[in-house]
Amino acid sequence: MTVAADSLQLATELGQLLLQKKWSITTAESCTGGGIGYWLTAVPGSSAYVDRGFITYSNKAKQQLLAVRSATLLQFGAVSEETVREMAQGAAKAAAADVAIAVSGIAGPDGGSAYKPVGTVCFGFYLAGHVASSHLVFAGDRQQVRQQAINFALKQSIELLTALSN
């Protein structure tokens, strides 16, 4: 299966779960630049569960639109589980959504460090009051890192929603 087919399949599956629960979803994206929102809205009928999303590439946007605290950004940086947790909570509140996916990372080719190498991506998830986060380091060029992050975010959302339902 192609990467695009994977993304569409994952977005379709996530949409079905949201429809079953009658829940809405929003995204707060930095390094993926709206890619998760793109795939969510590629699914016919997605307007039943998608109202809005946020592309918050800068720290200023994260603070203004998602209420990420400046202290969090100063202490942990934009690419941190602490920041994406606040991004997810802020997006859910701002969009009045039941579910939020937040992503911040270093897609490259520049910007990495020994502590946070290129390919590092942090994920935050808000699911009806429950907050989770994780981070991974993906291999590949900028586009590959971004696409892997999109698919992981969709897949992880499905897994978290399924676990919450059980």
Results as ranks from 00 to 15, higher is better:
A92Y: 09
A102D: 14
V103P: 07
G37T: 12
I55T: 14
K62P: 05
D98H: 14
L40Y: 09
S24V: 13
T56Y: 15
S58G: 01
T32P: 07
S46E: 01
L40V: 08
Y38S: 06
A92L: 06
A94F: 10
V68D: 06
T56W: 06
N59Y: 00
I36F: 15
E81D: 15
L66D: 02
N59H: 13
A67D: 12
R52C: 15
S104H: 10
E82Y: 15
A97V: 04
R85C: 11
Y49T: 04
T26L: 08
T32Y: 08
S47N: 12
W39T: 00
V103E: 07
G53E: 01
W23E: 09
C31R: 12
S113K: 15
R52G: 03
R69I: 08
Q75S: 12
E86A: 02
W23T: 01
T56G: 02
L66H: 00
G108Q: 02
A28Y: 07
G90H: 03
V50A: 03
S70M: 10
I36H: 05
G108H: 10
A107N: 12
R85H: 13
V68M: 09
V43M: 14
R52K: 12
G105L: 13
Y57L: 03
E29L: 07
G34N: 00
Y57R: 05
K62V: 02
F54W: 04
E86T: 05
T72P: 10
S47D: 14
A95E: 07
E86Q: 06
Q75H: 05
G108R: 06
G53W: 08
Y38W: 04
G111T: 15
S58R: 04
L73P: 02
V79N: 08
G45Q: 10
S46N: 09
E29P: 10
M87T: 07
P109C: 06
G53R: 08
G35H: 03
G108E: 03
L65H: 09
K22I: 00
S58T: 14
R69H: 04
L65C: 05
I106C: 02
D110K: 13
A48E: 07
S30M: 00
L40H: 09
K22V: 00
A100D: 12
G111D: 09
A28T: 00
I55C: 14
S47V: 09
Q64L: 13
L40N: 11
I101R: 08
A92G: 01
R69V: 07
G37S: 13
E82M: 14
S24Y: 15
A42P: 08
A28W: 02
I55P: 03
G90T: 04
Y49P: 02
A78R: 03
Q63K: 14
G90R: 08
T83I: 15
S80E: 04
D51W: 13
S47Q: 10
G105T: 11
